[in-house]
Simulated scan of single mutants.
Amino acid sequence: MISPPRSFAQIDVFTAQSGMGNPVAVVLDSAGLSDDAMQRFARWTNLSETTFVLPPTDARADYRLRIFAPGGELPFAGHPTLGSCHAWLAAGGAPKSPERIVQQCAKGLIDIRRDGERLAFAAPPSKYGEPLPAVLAQVVQAIGVNTAHILRAQVLDNGPVFMALQLDSASTVLALEPDHARLARLKQNVGVVGRYSSGQTRLPSTQSNHTAGTGEPLVEVRAFVPLMDINEDPITGSLNASLAQWLIEAGELPSRYVAAQGTVLGRAGRVHVERDAHGQVWVGGDSVTVVRGEVML
């Protein structure tokens, strides 16, 4: 039996220039698709996430979203949230409120606001936990960092769970050469962040043309995600959200900053973070449509 065509878009997120961010595949008309069909298509796209837009089951939401990585479904993820909202709006989606788009997902209701041409999501609450010393020691060995370079460590959970490490500099973050097979055996997603020092070069000069107008980054972030069946995620909204909640509260980062991610993968992701006067962290960035058409599932 031949399935009817379904509207489809592929969006590059956290960039205004296609090919420099993190792509997400978005099936805009997913009614009637089984879980198996969604998972199969997510493995086929071979992207870090593929999303499926559905009618909401909560009257407060504008649409419902299911998010699949190659390795399974996620309750929430950041760049798929922004990319899917971008695609939904571009396809004629009309939010109930002119000020907010409300996404329903397994994590709950996620507010998304327009920030000029950018979209930003309200970071859901994160759970915190102290890493087990034995597990932390193995993770440190697997990513190849000297313990002298680690400022603090925390387990962060806002849907995806990360062992998060604040390192002493962006240079230390960029120099990491993790043993991905070992991380997979440990079954640990690992996020790392380090600040740029004043005057430090953010990107190789050959990539400098991609940074114009995006804002100078304060930190560099990397995400190693074996639990999603990928080695390194180019740009990770959920991790940046948890890092911001953790490190702004700790006084390590200001209430407004830009994070760079994807540098070692040849990307130039820019994640715009802000904690508002009410304590809500917003995570946003540019998005651009790269592919628009139909898929047969």
Rank of each mutant, 00 (worst) to 15 (best):
A90C: 09
F121M: 14
T50I: 04
A123G: 07
L243I: 14
L47P: 10
N46V: 08
D229A: 14
G78Y: 01
I67Y: 00
T263M: 02
I248M: 05
V192A: 04
V290G: 02
L203N: 09
A244S: 14
R6C: 05
R43S: 09
L28G: 06
A31Y: 09
Q166W: 06
Y196L: 10
V264S: 00
S198V: 15
L136I: 00
A106N: 14
A25E: 09
V24Y: 01
R100Q: 14
A244W: 03
I248C: 05
S30C: 12
D115V: 12
P80G: 05
Q188F: 06
T81L: 03
R185E: 15
R6H: 08
G72N: 15
A106K: 15
P55N: 03
P75E: 14
G144D: 08
P133H: 01
A153E: 11
V139A: 02
P23V: 02
W246L: 06
V13K: 02
P70S: 06
T206V: 12
D35W: 13
G293K: 02
A122F: 02
A175V: 05
N231T: 10
L74G: 15
T214H: 10
Q138F: 01
D276P: 09
T50N: 07
R256G: 03
L47E: 06
V193E: 07
I230K: 04
G83C: 02
D62L: 08
R43G: 09
